[in-house]
Design a protein around this nucleic acid. Structure first.
Lengths: 201, 201
DNA sequence: CAGATTAGCGGAGGAGCCTCCGTTTTACAA
DNA sequence: TTGTAAAACGGAGGCTCCTCCGCTAATCTG
């Protein structure tokens, strides 16, 4: 029971291929965006398209595998922000960074949408990680009563995905910031200690 | 200058084809969802795929043409709600209906996303119509000071599209309602007359 | 080391998207 | 009516997605 180790180590060629594909994916995605042709990636990796699909059954799995590290870093950032900022500032700042990150990767929005959908069994771990980061931020802010006590992770997450939809447009930055502020105010509404850092109004 | 009439009436076969395609589209979309195969629609209409694309250059144009009437009705509903409800209730109710409508049409969300994007020249009219409806609702609510004075159409529209993203999921209704309430509270935040009809909290 | 057992490979193939362009049809004029 | 230019047609073709399955070769067993 203790060994999560021996469910047969993968065959070496498989392991090798997986890494070749991943490398090709990172290269291609960063150059052509996340909607690049998967066949092109397979070609560049020198494997058949079937092989690519066996390793990464959907575009999302491949994209996330390519960027997993960065998303993890984003989650870790939450803890750091909590140490250095007030609870509501930390929350606002983290959301801003998350949205900014998604915006920076052209095509990331729909992929993250799939990843975050609770329907999909495949991404449970990653989802839990993101969930954890946001949960911690929300709890702190609720504890000091700067946001409403019924704020919850799924709703805020969903609201955030609404925000990064906008990031496809030119001139998105301002609107995205306004929307995040609007969201923050929605979260603050009814809280005991109403502190605001809104720019508008 | 007065005659908007004579920029050459379309050829009859073209007119006929347009209508045949539209009928096939309504039938197919309502049965298979808005992501149905366009080639299937062309086939069902008995025209070549080229003909379909000439009449409706994108999936969005076809889908909107098929549902234009219903969207217009939705916009007209805004005026009616304004007569029968208080300004904030009217706003909230209209948003709820809009989201509900989008949710009812599987696949409508991404299409409306394109339609509402200011980038696209094609849908200027329809966009103006929706914009007008929402604008009226917001103005009234601002006037009686139940929502913040800096609330604006593009932001609220964008926030709404965030909400109807959720409608793809099962059990979306509750979350959608919560998100709309959250949005309403964000809009109320800082308003002079704070009236709430939140269910939670 | 030979033989058997699979995990893994890879590409053919069906389906859809969209464009391009040679052919057909229509409307209008002579 | 007949001729003709322009409008409209339609499908072939290039591309991508994704699945399926016969083949290959890595690993295991005796």
């Amino acid at each position: 029971m203790t060994d999560t180790q021996t469910p047969r180590p993968k065959r070496q060629d498989a392991q090798r291929n997986r890494e070749t594909i991943l490398a090709a994916a990172v290269a291609t995605f960063s150059q052509a965006g996340l909607d690049a042709s998967l066949e092109a990636i397979a070609r560049q990796a020198g494997v058949g398209i079937g092989t690519l699909y066996r390793h990464f059954p959907t575009r999302e799995t491949l994209a996330i595998a390519a960027y997993q590290h960065e998303v993890e870093q984003l989650c870790e950032k939450a803890a750091e922000l909590q140490r250095t900022l007030s609870p509501d500032q930390a929350l606002r700042e983290w959301m801003g960074r998350f949205v900014g990150y998604v915006a920076a990767k052209r095509g990331m929005a729909p992929i993250l949408r799939t990843v975050l959908s609770p329907e999909d069994e495949y991404f449970t771990d990653l989802r839990a990680q993101i969930h954890g980061a946001l949960d911690s931020l929300l709890r702190h802010a609720i504890q000091v009563e700067v946001i409403r006590p019924d704020a919850n992770v799924p709703d805020v997450m969903q609201a955030m995905s609404g925000v990064w939809l906008v990031s496809a447009e030119r001139e998105w930055r301002d609107q995205a910031e306004r929307l995040l502020d609007l969201l923050m105010d929605g979260l603050r509404y009814g809280a005991t200690n109403q502190t605001t850092n809104r720019r508008t109004l």
